[in-house]
C-alpha cells in the first residue's frame, strides 16, 4: 500500500465571505511517487487546489494534510519544504542574477548550510539539464530553459511534491517538450509525487491518474485511459479529447473493432496491426 502524501478531506473554499464557492466539498488523496494530472475548464478550481496544497490559501471548510501534517498558519513553513510549485509565467519567478544564485535562493531562505547548497545546486541543475548555464543571467535564457531552472530551484529543497501549475502554457512547442522530458526523468529518478495542472492532453496521458474538475467539484478521478472513454461528457464540460481517442471511436464506427482505448499513436497502430494480420 502506497503512502498518502496529500489528503483533502471535504475541502470547500471561496475567496470572499458570501461569495460563490470555488471548491465544494472536495476529497481526494495523492500518494508517494505518484504522477497525477488535474484538468478542468478555466475557473473549475484547479489552481485553487494547488494554492491550498502549500498554504497560499486556507480552506473555510474541511482539512488538508501534507505528509500527515495538517496545513495551517503554524505548519506552512514546514509544509512549503515538502511542496514545491512552478507557475505559468517564467518571467515572474526569477530572483537571482545568475542561474545558480536563483537555485540557491530557496535554500538560503531555509538556512541550508553552504556545503549542502553547493551540492544541491549541482544536483538539481544536472537533473534538469541546465548545469552548463549555471553562471548565465536569467534574461539570456529561453522560456523553456527558465522553467527548467525554476524546477531546479524547487528540486534543490528536496520536496516530496512538485506541482506544475500550467508551467508549460506560455512556452512554445519545443519548450513544452523540454519541460515534459525533464519532469518525467526527474520523477523516475527521485522519490517525488508530481502534480501537473494542465490543458495539454499530451501531459495528461503521461500521468498515472487524472482528477477532472468541473465547477468546483471533482467530476471524475481515474486513469487517463478510463477518463478518455467518456468523450462526449468531457466535451460537455469544456474539455478536449486526444486525437487518437477520437480516431479510435470513428474506426469502431467504420467497422474496425478496436478493443482497448488507445492513448497514443503507437498503441493504436499496434492494435490495428494485430487486427490487420488476423483479417
Amino acid at each position: 500500500m502506497r503512502r498518502k502524501i496529500i489528503e483533502f478531506r471535504e475541502v470547500s473554499f471561496r475567496y470572499e465571505d458570501e461569495g460563490p464557492w470555488v471548491l465544494k466539498n472536495c476529497s481526494f488523496e495523492i500518494y508517494e511517487n505518484e504522477w497525477v494530472a488535474i484538468i478542468g475548464h478555466n475557473g473549475s478550481g484547479k489552481s485553487t487546489i494547488a494554492k491550498l496544497m502549500n498554504g497560499l490559501l486556507f480552506p473555510q471548510e474541511g482539512e488538508i494534510y501534507i505528509n500527515g501534517e495538517q496545513v495551517n498558519q503554524e505548519s506552512i513553513w514546514d509544509i512549503r519544504k515538502e511542496v514545491g510549485m512552478v507557475f505559468q509565467n517564467p518571467d515572474n519567478q526569477f530572483v537571482g542574477t545568475t542561474v545558480q544564485d536563483d537555485v540557491a535562493f530557496g535554500m538560503e531562505n531555509r538556512g541550508f548550510p553552504r556545503e549542502v547548497m553547493v551540492k544541491q545546486i549541482e544536483d538539481s541543475l544536472q537533473a534538469v539539464g541546465m548545469h552548463a548555464y549555471r553562471q548565465t543571467e536569467p534574461h539570456r535564457l529561453s522560456g523553456g530553459q527558465k522553467q527548467r531552472v525554476a524546477i531546479a530551484s524547487v528540486l534543490a529543497i528536496a520536496p516530496k511534491v512538485l506541482i506544475l501549475d500550467e508551467a508549460t502554457a506560455m512556452l512554445d512547442p519545443k519548450g513544452r517538450t523540454e519541460i515534459m522530458n525533464t519532469v518525467s526523468k526527474v520523477q523516475e529518478n527521485k522519490k517525488l509525487s508530481l502534480i501537473t495542472i494542465t490543458h495539454d492532453l499530451r501531459e495528461v496521458v503521461q500521468a498515472e491518474r487524472v482528477i477532472v474538475m468541473n465547477a468546483g467539484v471533482i467530476w471524475d478521478e481515474a486513469t487517463p485511459r478510463e477518463i478518455f472513454t467518456k468523450k462526449d461528457e468531457l466535451r460537455k464540460i469544456g474539455l478536449d479529447v486526444p486525437f487518437v481517442a477520437i480516431l479510435a471511436d470513428e474506426l469502431v464506427q467504420a467497422g474496425i473493432a478496436i478493443h482497448d482505448e488507445p492513448l497514443n499513436h503507437e498503441e493504436l497502430l499496434e492494435d490495428l496491426w494485430t487486427l490487420h494480420s488476423k483479417m
Binding site: 486525437f243 470513428e250 474506426l251 464506427q253 474496425i256 499513436h265 503507437e266 497502430l269 496491426w273
Partner: peptide, 30 residues
C-alpha cells in the same frame, strides 16, 4: 499528419492529407 506518416511507415500504405475529418480518415483506413 504525424499519425498518417506513422501509419504509412507501419503499413506501407499512404493516405494523403487533404484536411479531411477524422470520420473520413477512419473510413479511408477501413
Amino acid at each position: 499528419i504525424q499519425f498518417l506518416l506513422a501509419f504509412e511507415k507501419r503499413f506501407g500504405m499512404k493516405i494523403p492529407y487533404e484536411r479531411q475529418s477524422v470520420q473520413k480518415l477512419a473510413v479511408q483506413m477501413q
